[in-house]
Each structure stands twice: as C-alpha cells, then as structure tokens.
Simulated assay, not measured.
Amino acid sequence: MNIGLTGGIACGKSTVSEMLVRRGAMLVDADRIAREVVEPGMPALAQIVERWGAELLLPDGSLHRKKLGEIVFASPDALQELQRITHPPIRAAMRERMAELQRLHPDKLVVVDVPLLYESELQSLFEAVMVVYIPRELQLDRLMQRDGLTREQAEQRLRAQMDIERKKALADIVIDNQGTLEQTEGQVKTFLKERRLL
C-alpha cells in the first residue's frame, strides 16, 4: 500500500513520518528531493539563477534558500514561477522512488511525504492521503517559534498553502497532532492496525 502524507507547514508531518518509519514503513521525502533538484550542477538551480540572479547563490555555489524564500513568499507570481521550475523534476524523482520501493518491498507501506500534495493535485498518485492536522492559530505559533519568524512572515507562508481546514476536509485519514506525542502515536498505531500493517 502507498499513502501520500501531507499537512500544513509546522503541523508535524516529519514527526508522523518518523513514527510510521519506526513501524516499518518506507519513506519518500519530497522535501529532500526538492533540495536535491536545486543542488549545484542541477538544471533547476541554473533556471532559478537565470530568473532571479546570481545573488541567490552562496559562496560555495549552493542555493541561498532563505533569500529565495523571502522573494517567493512575498509574491504569489514568483512562487508559481519557482514551482514551474522545480515541480516537474521533483515529481519525476518522487514517482521513480515510489515505484522502486514498491517493487523492492511489496509487503511494506510506502509513505510519500509531500507538503504541497493538494496544491499540486497529486492525490491520484496515492491509494489514500493522510493529513497531519493542527488548528491554524497553533500552526502560526509553532511556525513562528520553530523558524524565528514574525507573525507577518508566518502568515505569508501560511497563505502560500491551502488552508489546513480544507486539507483536513479532503483527507482520507486525519492525524490530529495538537495533543501529546503519545496521543499522536496512538492514532498512528490505530491507522496501521486498521490497515493490517502492524
């Protein structure tokens, strides 16, 4: 079986994916792939530099992610443009890794962690979509604390994604992550037992 794992920024997707992996799931991490496709020498990085300039490069030739974030989260058009550059290679690598894991481990759960799963309309790739949920106010607080952002910067990042309540409504499986780690873990175990994956 495969599932798409998503949620909003700072909702705790990584925590839930770690819990699933500890119980035997195989993980494809779209965020990791997103970093790989903009490494030095990759076509996507060359396109980003061509579009926004060499000042987005650090001295070692790698991408200055924070500077790029400031540009794209301040402008929906710039964010769309970045997604046009990076999404095709990310999706290709994601599909490839998913297929490989399913071929090598047909009896295992394959979890594909995709932050913008619904925004990118990728739900048809998966047998089910799991959303890690916390209410928006808590999401804002956690994001400001985690990344040292002002409220306005955090709001900008949240506005760049589909609203968490909408994701929750679309989900096949919801993991509510506003309680304790033990409570979240309990929901993960219940999901795995129900699907006979534990």
Rank of each mutant, 00 (worst) to 15 (best):
Glu155Thr: 12
Leu101Pro: 05
Asp31Tyr: 02
Ile175Thr: 03
Glu50Asn: 09
Arg142Tyr: 03
Val49Ile: 15
Ala171Pro: 07
Ala30Thr: 01
Met144Val: 00
Leu192Phe: 12
Val132Gly: 06
Lys67Gln: 15
Met144Asp: 02
Arg146Trp: 02
Thr6Gly: 05
Met26Thr: 03
Ser62Tyr: 10
Phe191Cys: 02
Ser14Trp: 03
Leu104Lys: 09
Arg136Leu: 08
Phe73Arg: 11
Ile175Ser: 02
Thr150Asn: 05
Leu149Met: 05
Leu170Ser: 00
Glu96Gln: 13
Glu18Asn: 10
Arg51Val: 11
Gly41His: 05
Arg22Glu: 15
Glu55Leu: 06
Leu5Asp: 00
Ile33Phe: 01
Lys67Asn: 01
Pro106Ala: 11
Trp52Arg: 00
Leu181Ala: 13
Glu39Pro: 04
Ser17Leu: 09
Ser17Asn: 11
Val114Thr: 11
Ala169Trp: 07
Pro135Trp: 07
Ser17Lys: 08
Leu63Ser: 13
Gln83Val: 06
Gly24Ile: 12
Leu149His: 07
Leu45Ser: 04
Leu149Asp: 00
Val38Glu: 08
Thr180Gly: 08
Thr190Ile: 06
Gln123Asn: 07
Glu194Trp: 04
Ile71Gln: 05
Met162Leu: 12
Gly53Gln: 06
Phe126Ala: 02
Gly186Gln: 13
Gln156Ser: 11
Asp60Ile: 14
Arg136Met: 04
Asp172Glu: 05
Ser14His: 10
Pro106Phe: 12
Gly7Arg: 11
Met98Val: 01
Glu119Leu: 10
Met144Lys: 09
Ala74Tyr: 02
Lys168Tyr: 08
Arg195Thr: 09
Met42Asn: 05
Thr86Glu: 05
Glu55Met: 07
Thr190Asn: 07
Leu198Trp: 12
Ile90Asn: 00
Cys11Met: 09
Ala46Val: 03
Leu197Gln: 05
Ala160Glu: 10
Gly8Ile: 00
Gly61Gln: 08
Phe191Met: 08
Asn2Met: 03
Asp60Met: 14
Leu27Phe: 05
Ile71Met: 03
Lys168His: 14
Arg97Gly: 12
Arg166His: 13
Val131Ser: 01
Arg136Pro: 00
Leu57Ala: 14
Gln178Arg: 14
Ala128Trp: 01
Ser17Ile: 05
Asp77His: 09
Tyr118His: 14
Ser62Lys: 13
Gly4Ser: 08
Gly179Thr: 03
Leu149Gly: 03
Pro88Asn: 14
Arg146His: 12
Ala169Ile: 13
Pro115His: 10
Pro59Val: 04
Lys13Phe: 04
Pro88Lys: 05
Arg23Met: 13
Ala44Lys: 00
Val38Trp: 10
Asp147Tyr: 04
Glu137Ala: 14
Leu20Asn: 08
Arg51Pro: 01
Arg151Ser: 08
Asp172Pro: 04
Arg91Trp: 13
Ser14Phe: 03
Leu58Tyr: 01
Phe191Ile: 15
Leu125Lys: 04
Val114Cys: 02
Trp52Pro: 01
Ala99Asn: 13
Leu117Asn: 11
Asp77Gln: 09
Arg157Phe: 04
Met19Asp: 08
Val21Arg: 15
Gly41Met: 07
Lys189Cys: 15
Pro115Asn: 10
Leu63Phe: 13
Leu138Ile: 05
Glu50Ser: 12
Leu27Glu: 02
Ile9Glu: 04
Glu81Leu: 01
Thr190Gln: 10
Leu68Met: 14
Gly53Asp: 13
Val111Tyr: 09
Arg157Leu: 13
